[in-house]
Amino acid sequence: MRGQVEGSVYMGLGEALMEEQEFRRLPKKLSHALVHKFPSILEYKSPTSLDMPEVTTELIEAPDPRGPFGAKEVGQGPLLPIMPAVANAVYDAVGVRIDEIPVTPEKIMKALAE
């Protein structure tokens, strides 16, 4: 279960800081489909082991009466608070609100200049 939490923190950090989904339209004479602008992990960077911070996991064991034998999910829940936490940390540090992810240095510099 700790691994689920740490994995979620990791994915959340990737989404919050690095992983930008950009799309482009194929020309009309092709399929005109919406495809990934950078369909490789050369451009779509994910955090590596060097980027991963220490994570303190505290599990609160409270059974969910609606789940089988009190079970509940643990996988994706810890992922969601990471993005607002990072954006709030940026606000706390430099005083600008970045309201879209990923929170990139370019966006922060632009917001600071305004």
Binding site: S8, Y10, M11, S46, S49, M52, V55
Partner: peptide
């Protein structure tokens, strides 16, 4: 950390 920095892992967050 340095040694396995070339291996991407999407699930574990590396700590374990």
């Amino acid at each position: 950390r340095e040694a396995i920095s070339g291996n991407l892992c999407r699930c574990t967050g590396y700590l374990q």
